[in-house]
């Protein structure tokens, strides 16, 4: 994927979250990582890139095609994407299986039987086999996040947006979810990942954007950035997050 962002601004009320954010991917990337302090604008950028919200001003284009931010086009864009959030955001009134099946049937026009087969296959793959009939809150946080991942990839999206998918998980579940993400990456899935897991970012060694105060402070390959940050802000940030 080639991502181009020009003078992107976004504000909630009077609060300016993104301020003239600029970025051009140097090559055809498969994975993009967004890192940086909380409240810096990672989540907002992710939502704008996936068409969940429309920016106050500025332009985004994927593979040379500019994103239209009218309601219709945004919905079309969302349907090509999959999303996973920090707090799982499963639908609590639907069973685990229905969380996956209902969007497949109602949004993507799958038959019920196809959708069910797909759900069973994915639940099995993410280690939550046999939990399909339970309510989401009967599962552990890690299991819920696996279901959220399954829901996000069920329709075989072109691009996956992951918004701090492991921030609410314990270390063991974090490792399991990161393994699953790693598997997607190796399988060729396009991913935009916002995360605080610096070790994982380094291991992926993908194009990485350090975002703070609503703009891109530094970008480049992860290993290079982590080992030799150019800006003073980046040096201080990495020194702090890598201290322990």
């Amino acid at each position: 994927m080639r991502l181009n962002i020009e003078r992107l601004c976004h504000q909630y009320g009077k609060h300016l979250v993104l301020e003239n954010l600029e970025f051009q991917s140097p090559a055809d990337e498969r994975v993009l990582c967004l890192i940086g302090p909380s409240g810096g604008g990672k989540s907002t950028l992710l939502r704008l890139l996936g068409g969940l919200e429309s920016p106050s001003s500025g332009a985004v284009s994927w593979d040379g095609e500019e994103v239209n931010y009218d309601e219709r086009s945004m919905r079309a864009l969302r349907r090509e994407c999959g999303f996973v959030f920090q707090q799982f955001n499963l639908f609590p009134h639907l069973t685990v299986e229905k969380n996956i099946v209902v969007p497949l049937v109602k949004v993507h026009g799958w038959s019920l039987a196809e959708a069910r087969d797909r759900a069973v296959e994915l639940l099995d793959r993410f280690g939550v086999a046999g939990q399909g009939d339970k309510a989401p809150d009967a599962l552990s946080g890690g299991q819920q996040q696996c279901v959220a991942l399954a829901r996000a990839v069920a329709h075989r999206p072109k691009r996956l947006f992951l918004d701090e998918p492991t921030s609410a998980l314990d270390p063991e579940m974090t490792a399991e979810v990161l393994d699953a993400i790693r598997e997607f990456v190796d399988g060729g899935q396009q991913i935009v990942l916002a995360t605080h897991e610096m070790g994982f970012v380094r291991a992926l060694d993908a194009e990485t954007l350090l975002i703070a105060d609503g703009s891109v402070v530094e970008s480049g390959s992860a290993a290079a950035m982590l080992d030799a940050p150019k800006s003073e802000f980046a040096q201080r940030f990495f020194a702090k997050v890598m201290r322990y």
């Binding site: 919905r75 994407c81 999303f83 959030f85 499963l90 969007p103 109602k106 949004v107």
Partner: peptide
């Protein structure tokens, strides 16, 4: 609000 966000994220229309 996170539920509405998730609904949009899976591709539901505003009616759905």
């Amino acid at each position: 609000r996170a539920q509405r966000l998730a609904a949009r994220a899976v591709g539901f229309s505003s009616r759905q």
